[in-house]
Simulated assay, not measured.
Amino acid sequence: MKIFYAIQATGNGHISRAIQLHPYLQKFGDVDFFLSGNNATLPVDLPVKFKSKGCSLLYSKCGGLDYTAIAKNIKPIQMYKDAKALPLKHYDVIINDFDSITALACKLQKVDSVQFGHQASFISNQTPRPSKKSFLGETIFKHYAPSTKHIGLHFESYDSFIHPPIIKEEIINATPKDMQHITVYLPSFDKDCLEKAFKKLPDVAFHWFLSEITEKYISGNITYFPVNQKYFNESLISCHGIITGGGFETPSEALYLNKKVLSIPILNHYEQLCNAAALEKMGVQVIYEVGNEFELIVEKWLNATSNNPTIKANDIKKTLQYLFDTYPKRK
């Protein structure tokens, strides 16, 4: 069996999921990966056969999206050419983790696909949303990467086709411990946006992962790390809690480990606002703006006594078997 897997590389979560799935997929057939987008920092240790600049999300300085940079990065003519050039008819199964070029290629070449991943869960109206829905956000969920079939991943099973998150083996096999530090991963924030606030909490040790850092170093109560999978796994497994965005993969791993989570969704990022709504329902603290007294919010969060919610990990073998068993048969 020949398998085509499209990765949306606008962030690290999609890549991390694909790396975890790869050995399981290999048991079903030969896998070729398509990397679409250019805003990830993780090394891609996968057999990537096709690449495109695609469409990536780019961030402003302190917690928002840079819409001007995003618009400049979109090359519709090239994206159309890339879609037309993908040889999808040579593949038996096409798995799309929310990539618009692959979806367009499927439409042009009249082949089926399955949208597999977190965004697929938002096809269901039962998946949590913020109190104020976004017409644009809902349109993107439904029409950005349309597929014949959907298999969603989310914190909880809000609908029959939604499964638990893919958790890395290193996390599943770990023995969590509490070394009292706070792990920080906020890729939409530059260093100088939050550094003063963290320095105002000298008794709290922070492990801060930043894309601009190339070598680990310590300054006062902050240990700065490059975005590195090994370092991050070790820090998360041994942390007291984590401050992160409103993404999916990192909160999922933290909740699986029963860690304390403070979520700061990216401003005006509808998917992250939806995730934040789900996290709040589970009892996780969410803040939507970082003001001048951010350190007080962090301190209050640290001192709050609450039961950390836990989630299950995906049974990858079972989920993939379901995917291949129910994949649309070619006519």
Rank of each mutant, 00 (worst) to 15 (best):
M1F: 02
G11R: 04
G11E: 06
I15C: 07
R17G: 09
A18E: 07
I19E: 12
L21R: 00
H22G: 05
H22T: 09
P23E: 11
L25M: 14
F28L: 13
G29R: 14
D30P: 00
D30L: 12
D32H: 15
F33Y: 15
S36K: 04
N38T: 13
N39C: 10
A40P: 00
L42D: 10
L46D: 13
F50A: 05
F50R: 11
K51N: 10
G54E: 01
S56Q: 10
L58K: 14
Y59T: 12
Y67F: 14
Y67G: 00
Y67N: 11
Y67D: 09
K72E: 08
L86D: 09
L88C: 14
K89A: 13
H90S: 12
Y91I: 05
I95F: 01
D97P: 08
F98C: 09
A103F: 01
A103L: 00
A105H: 04
Q109G: 08
S113T: 11
S113P: 06
S113G: 02
H118Q: 15
H118F: 04
Q119A: 12
A120G: 02
S124I: 01
Q126T: 05
P130K: 14
S131C: 08
K132D: 12
L136D: 09
L136K: 11
T139W: 09
I140Q: 08
I140A: 11
L153G: 06
L153N: 03
D159R: 10
I162W: 02
H163K: 15
P164H: 08
I171W: 00
I172P: 02
N173L: 14
P176K: 13
K177G: 11
K177F: 07
I182F: 04
T183I: 00
T183D: 03
V184E: 02
F189Q: 10
D190L: 11
D192M: 12
C193V: 10
K196V: 08
A197I: 09
F198V: 00
P202I: 09
P202K: 12
F206E: 06
I213S: 09
E215I: 02
K216A: 06
K216R: 12
S219K: 15
K230V: 15
Y231Q: 13
F232E: 01
N233K: 01
L236I: 13
L236Q: 07
S238I: 08
C239W: 02
H240K: 15
H240S: 14
G241S: 04
I242E: 05
I242R: 05
I243R: 06
T244V: 07
G245T: 13
Y256R: 11
L257Y: 03
N258R: 12
K259G: 07
V261N: 04
S263Y: 02
I264P: 05
I264C: 10
I264Q: 08
I266T: 15
Y270P: 03
E271K: 00
E271T: 06
L273G: 00
C274I: 02
C274T: 03
C274L: 04
C274D: 02
A278Y: 04
K281N: 15
M282T: 09
V284W: 03
E289F: 04
N292P: 02
F294E: 07
V298G: 06
K300R: 14
K300T: 15
W301R: 07
L302H: 09
N307C: 06
P309Q: 12
P309N: 10
N314T: 12
D315S: 11
T319I: 15
Y322M: 07
Y322G: 00
F324Y: 04
F324L: 10
F324D: 05
K329V: 07
